[in-house]
Amino acid sequence: MPTFEYQAYDRAGQMVRSASAADSMRQLRRELIERGLFVTDVREIRPRSPRRRWLSPRIRLADLSLLMRQLAILVNSGMALEEALRLVSDQTEQPVQKQALESWREGVASGYSFSASLKKSSFAISERVVAAIGVAEETGHLHKVLTRVADELEEGNDNRQTLMKGLIYPAVMIVVAIAVIGVMVGYVVPQVAKVFVNARQELPLLTRATIALSDFLRVFGLPLLGLVAASVTGFWLSLRNPARRLRWHRFLLSAPLIGNWLLLAALADWCRSMGTLLHSGVPVLSALSISAAGVSNRHLRQRLEAVGEKVRQGNSLFQSLKAEPLMPGFMLHMVSSGESSSELDTMLIRVSDYYSTRLKNTVDTLLKLLEPALVVFMGLVVLLIVGAVLVPIVKMNQLI
Rank of each mutant, 00 (worst) to 15 (best):
I178N: 04
H279E: 14
W104S: 01
A171I: 00
M173H: 07
A255Y: 08
Q7S: 14
R69P: 06
V16R: 14
G140S: 02
I400S: 08
A229R: 07
I33N: 13
L374H: 04
M25E: 15
T40D: 14
L390C: 09
W261I: 03
E31C: 08
Q302N: 09
G259R: 09
L101F: 08
M378S: 02
A136G: 05
K144R: 11
Y187A: 10
L32S: 05
D364E: 14
Q319Y: 01
E83K: 07
M1Y: 13
P2M: 10
K395V: 10
V189P: 05
R298E: 11
S122W: 06
V88N: 08
V192Y: 12
L300V: 06
G36W: 06
A124D: 15
A19V: 02
Q201C: 02
M1C: 04
I45S: 06
D90H: 12
M1E: 07
F38M: 13
T92Q: 09
S352P: 05
T139N: 09
P283C: 00
T207L: 15
R312A: 11
I133V: 15
I385A: 07
L370R: 05
S291Q: 00
G186V: 11
L224N: 03
V363A: 04
Q14S: 10
S231P: 07
N241P: 06
V130A: 12
L225E: 05
R105S: 00
W261S: 04
G221S: 00
C271M: 06
H279M: 09
N297M: 02
L61A: 15
L278Q: 01
P328E: 07
R60H: 15
I178C: 14
R298A: 14
G13V: 00
R218Y: 00
L205R: 11
V176G: 13
Y354P: 10
A12H: 08
T365L: 14
R51T: 10
R43N: 13
S356V: 07
R53G: 13
L253C: 04
V295N: 04
P283A: 00
L264Y: 13
A100P: 08
H299P: 05
L205V: 11
A230N: 06
V307K: 09
E44Q: 13
A21E: 12
S341G: 02
V39N: 02
